[in-house]
Amino acid sequence: MSRISRHPLWLLPLAAILLGCSEKEAPEPVRPALYVVAHPLLIDNLGRFAGTIEARYESTLGFRVPGRIVRRNYDVGAVVKEGDILANLDPTDQQNQLRAAQGDLAKVQAQLINAQANARRQQELFDRGVGAQAQLDTAQADLKTTAASVQQAQAAVNQAKDELSYCNLRADHDSVITQWQAEAGQVVSVGESVVTLARPEIKEAVIDLPGPLAEALPKGIEFRVAGQLDPDVNTLAHVREIAPQADSATRTRRTRLTLDQTPPAFRLGSSVSVTVSSPIAQHYSLPLTAVQETDGHARVWIIDKTTYTVTPQNVNILRRGPKTVLLEGGLKDGDYVVSYGVHSLKPGQTVKLDKESAQ
């Protein structure tokens, strides 16, 4: 005959209570956490723009007389000295004008000799009392008129000589030829652009900035100009001039930068890259997934490096990007910030850090 063991009924509720307590006190699993280390940004990069090295001072020259260009003496890129002849016009017309002016001058000079002789004769006759006052006055008036005609003819000769010399287009300063606007054989008018000269002693960087940025450059703006082929060749620059009006097609404004230094590699026409940045207060750039937004408030989760527990920290969003967000307030340099899964965290929750997961 088998024996049936019996347990007191009062033990059943006690067993249920103990079983419930054991379920509540089960430790919560420690979840791994991806994190980033917060480091402050002291420079706000506003963009990088392509530019060129140009001379600060340029001049466009043209002939002072009309004519047909018969010769160009230099090519683009040539270094010329002050007074060098850059191009020549056909001087035939100017030479003919000079010969005509010289003929007129010789004619009035002969008339002046006759007028001078007549005036002397009339003066001698008048002094002996046999000449009339009216004839003397007429002779002296003719002498003055002829002398004035000689001066006029001499001025015409000088002008014809000048116009003949204007057939030679000369450099007005030591410079580099950057552009020709006319070709040999072309007929040009007075003042028409023929050649552009640049003074190489003072160079500057030229870029096109977006209109909104050019109109509101922050205080302490910094421009770093670097060679596109060799970024290690670089120098700082500052704004010298911003075009008062935006380009109608691109809506950008031409900006000229004075270089603090001019490396030899910065030759006229060379391409450069200009990085625009501005010093700012301590801001932090974090992944967009590190920020939790609730009811218009933004916060991040900071990991305690000692207890490995997480704590929410309110922050202010300054600017959003496609993958990052710029924050201020609530963070310190070196803080561990959870970068993924922030919506499932609870204050005081313990997490496991994997160094390989640091972003």
Rank of each mutant, 00 (worst) to 15 (best):
T311Y: 00
T258A: 15
Y340T: 15
G269Y: 09
V325F: 01
K323G: 02
V310E: 04
P287E: 05
L331K: 04
T307I: 01
V300Y: 05
Q282I: 00
R267M: 13
D333Q: 11
I303R: 00
Q292G: 05
V274Y: 07
Q349G: 05
L286M: 10
G348F: 05
L288F: 07
L268F: 10
W301I: 06
P264M: 00
V337K: 00
Y308I: 00
L286H: 10
G329N: 05
T258C: 10
P347D: 14
Y308P: 00
L257K: 01
A281F: 03
Q313V: 13
L327T: 02
V338E: 10
Y336T: 03
S277F: 02
T306H: 07
W301A: 12
Y284L: 09
T309D: 07
V337N: 08
D295S: 09
D333H: 09
P347C: 10
Y340R: 15
K323P: 00
S285Q: 15
L259A: 07
G341A: 04
K332V: 03
A281M: 08
T307W: 00
L286G: 10
T324L: 02
R320S: 10
Q282F: 01
S273N: 15
L327E: 03
T255N: 12
T255E: 12
L345D: 14
T262W: 10
P347M: 05
R299S: 13
T309F: 06
P279I: 07
G269T: 12
N316R: 11
S339Y: 07
P322I: 03
Q261E: 15
Q349S: 04
S270K: 08
L326Y: 05
L286W: 09
K346T: 08
Y340K: 10
E293G: 03
T309S: 10
Y308Q: 14
S339V: 12
Q292V: 07
V291G: 10
D304C: 03
V310W: 01
T350V: 06
G269L: 01
T307E: 13
G334K: 12
R320Y: 08
P287L: 13
V337A: 10
R254L: 14
L257F: 02
G330F: 02
T350R: 15
V276L: 11
Y308S: 09
E328I: 08
T324A: 09
V291I: 13
P279M: 07
I303L: 02
A298C: 06
Q349N: 04
D295Y: 03
G269V: 10
V276P: 08
S344Q: 15
T306M: 04
P264H: 01
G329L: 09
L257A: 10
A265R: 14
G334C: 08
K323N: 11
I303Q: 08
R299M: 12
D333F: 00
I280K: 03
S270V: 15
S339M: 11
V325L: 09
K305E: 14
I302V: 15
Y340V: 14
Q313P: 00
V310N: 04
Y284R: 12
T306C: 01
K346F: 11
V315Y: 03
L257Q: 10
L318M: 07
I302P: 01
V276F: 09
G321Y: 08
P347S: 11
L331Y: 05
G321A: 02
K346L: 13
W301L: 04
P312A: 02
G330M: 05
G341N: 06
Q282Y: 04
S339E: 12
T255W: 03
Y340D: 15
H283Y: 09
L288E: 06
L259N: 06
D295E: 14
E328V: 13
R254H: 12
P279V: 06
T258R: 13
G348L: 04
